[in-house]
Amino acid sequence: MTNYAAEADIQTAGEKLQRLRGALNSVLFGQEPLVDTVVIGLLARGHLLLEGLPGLGKTELVKGLAKALQVQAKRIQFTPDLLPGDITGNPLLQEVNGTRQFVFQPGPIFANLVLADEINRASPKTQSALLEAMQERRVTVMGETHALPDPFFVLATQNPIELEGTYPLPEAQLDRFLFKIEVRRNAVPVLERIIQQREIGVEPTVPAVLTRAEFQGCADLVRRIFLPGVVTNYIARLVDATQTMPGVKYGASPRAALGLAAAARARALLEGRLNASFEDVQAVAAPVLQHRLVLDYQARLDGQTGTSVVATLLEKIPTQDRATPPALTTVKG
């Protein structure tokens, strides 16, 4: 039998993750689902794309995460004139031991947590500089490969408005983000709480709740979460069904299936369970799949979005690959 996670390990990890959730929720008021999704994404070792209006706390979340996890965080503000070398780093001519030679100066991407702010404002050439770093977790400059620190996460943000002069991320790069998370606006009570407890220019204090090693341990534990065969089958059928969904021009890739499985396991760990379930898959299906579906013109004209298509998909595909006999009817429980 594979070395699945034990009950005690799950319980210990759960306590740690609970502390992390509490720390992040103290930074970002009223965004518990968002915080949970971000933690799940990090546990699954995925890169996250946050989409929302300015001022909703995306940057604060990343900064708070870096403080809570005690990892190195860097922020890159993407602009149209940003060059790839500004991200990955450049070789500089330096005098070393009496000789002049090129010495690689690491760029801001060499951090555990990289915040790519307004990523869609950089040119495609600069955006593509992130491709290798996100997928391979290493950077190659002038034929020399440099490994990125572990853990390495990219949390990119993009603004859904003011799209003039922006460069939408290509599908290949979108596919490298495990989650695309929509950051929603706050409700009135949450706004009241923000007004009462925050001031402009004063950063909130975030306690360090986890060490890097502890977080790495939790991420490793995710891989030991039991994924039942029926859940694997459910994930496969869901991803396969995206290819034939009405309104979808191109469906999700196998990388999406892997991401869905990893995210479902991470959610099970966050919930303190030994195994992933149908409910875990359904909970993470929207952030995993919505940005990987390329809708056709008619679907976009009809107002469909990736989220609505995934919702239809979850409604259409049964958890169990078994037809119901005509003599029986399914009762909604």
Partner: peptide
């Protein structure tokens, strides 16, 4: 078992238990 855990929202605990996990 799968049918039961899906309908009763048991988070696939029956399948896991039948496999020997939990």
């Amino acid at each position: 078992l799968v049918r039961l855990e899906a309908v009763l929202h048991l988070h696939n605990r029956l399948t896991a238990a039948a496999t020997g996990i939990g």
